[in-house]
Deep mutational scan, measured.
Amino acid sequence: MDVFMKGLSKAKEGVVAAAEKTKQGVAEAAGKTKEGVLYVGSKTKEGVVHGVATVAEKTKEQVTNVGGAVVTGVTAVAQKTVEGAGSIAAATGFVKKDQLGKNEEGAPQEGILEDMPVDPDNEAYEMPSEEGYQDYEPEA
Rank of each mutant, 00 (worst) to 15 (best):
E35L: 10
E110F: 07
N103Q: 09
E28V: 12
E104Q: 07
I112R: 07
T81A: 13
K12V: 14
T75P: 01
V3L: 06
G73A: 15
Y125T: 09
N103F: 06
A69F: 09
A90D: 06
V74S: 01
K45W: 15
K58Q: 05
G7E: 04
E139F: 13
G7N: 13
V77A: 08
E130G: 12
E83V: 10
T75I: 06
T81I: 06
P120S: 08
S129A: 06
V82I: 06
L113S: 12
E131L: 05
V15M: 15
K58L: 13
K58N: 05
K58D: 01
K21L: 12
L38A: 04
E28A: 07
E46K: 05
E110L: 13
M5E: 00
V26H: 00
Q24N: 07
V63N: 01
V15L: 09
A124L: 04
A140P: 07
V77I: 14
M5W: 06
V82E: 02
N65E: 08
D2M: 05
A90Q: 11
K45C: 10
M5Q: 00
A69K: 09
P128Y: 06
E105D: 10
M127C: 07
D121C: 08
V48D: 00
A124N: 04
E126M: 09
A140C: 12
T92G: 08
L38Q: 07
T33Q: 01
L38N: 04
H50E: 06
V82C: 06
G84H: 07
G7S: 15
V118E: 12
E13G: 04
G132I: 13
K10C: 02
A140G: 13
Y39C: 03
G106R: 06
G14N: 08
G132A: 11
E61A: 05
D98K: 08
K6D: 03
V52R: 01
E137W: 07
Q134T: 03
V77T: 03
K21C: 03
V63E: 01
G31P: 00
G51I: 15
A53M: 14
E110R: 09
I112A: 03
Q62M: 06
G93Q: 04
P108Q: 12
K23I: 02
V63F: 10
Y125Q: 10
G132W: 11
V52S: 02
E104I: 07
S129I: 06
V15P: 00
V48P: 00
G106I: 12
V63D: 01
G25V: 14
G68E: 12
L8I: 04
D121I: 09
K23H: 04
G14Q: 15
G86Y: 14
P108S: 08
V63R: 03
E28T: 07
E110V: 09
V52G: 01
T44S: 11
A19I: 04
S87K: 05
D135H: 09
A69Q: 09
G25F: 14
P108I: 05
G73H: 10
D121K: 11
E28C: 05
D135K: 05
N122A: 04
G47F: 10
K96D: 07
H50L: 13
E61K: 08
E46S: 10
E131Q: 07
D119F: 03
G31A: 11
K97D: 15
K23S: 04
Q109G: 03
K60V: 10
K43Q: 04
D2A: 01
A107I: 03
S87E: 11
G73D: 02
N103T: 11
T54W: 12
V82N: 03
D121E: 11
L113I: 12
E28D: 05
G25A: 15
V52N: 01
K43Y: 12
L100T: 06
A76L: 11
A91Q: 08
G84L: 12
A78T: 09
G86T: 10
K97C: 12
T81K: 02
A85Q: 03
K96I: 03
Q62F: 05
K21M: 14
F94E: 02
A30H: 02
V77C: 09
V37P: 00
L8G: 00
A27N: 08
P138R: 05
M5T: 01
E13A: 15
Q24P: 00
A76N: 11
D115L: 05
E139L: 05
G68W: 15
V15I: 14
P120N: 06
A90L: 14
K32E: 00
E137H: 08
H50D: 05
E13Y: 05
M5Y: 03
Q109S: 12
G14T: 15
K45S: 07
F94V: 03
Y136D: 02
L113F: 09
E35Y: 14
M5V: 09
K45M: 15
K23W: 15
D2Q: 12
P108C: 11
L8T: 00
D135E: 13
Q79W: 06
V52H: 01
E126S: 05
T81S: 05
K32C: 03
V70M: 06
S129M: 10
S42A: 14
T64H: 13
L8D: 00
K6T: 03
E104Y: 12
E20A: 13
G41N: 03
S87N: 09
V70H: 01
K60M: 15
T22Y: 05
Y39L: 11
G25T: 15
V52P: 01
V3T: 00
E105Y: 07
D115R: 05
T33K: 00
E139N: 11
G14H: 15
V118A: 09
Y136Q: 08
Y125P: 10
Y136V: 08
V26G: 00
G47M: 08
V74L: 15
D115S: 05
Q99E: 06
I112V: 11
K34L: 06
P120E: 08
K6Q: 02
D2R: 01
E139Y: 13
K10D: 01
V49E: 03
A19R: 02
A85I: 14
V48G: 01
S9Q: 09
M116V: 01
V66Y: 14
K97G: 11
D119A: 11
F94I: 07
A30T: 05
K60I: 12
K23E: 00
E137S: 10
G84Q: 11
G84P: 02
E139P: 05
K60S: 04
K6Y: 04
M1N: 00
E104T: 07
E130R: 05
K97F: 02
A11R: 00
V37H: 00
G101N: 02
A17Q: 10
E61W: 12
E46G: 10
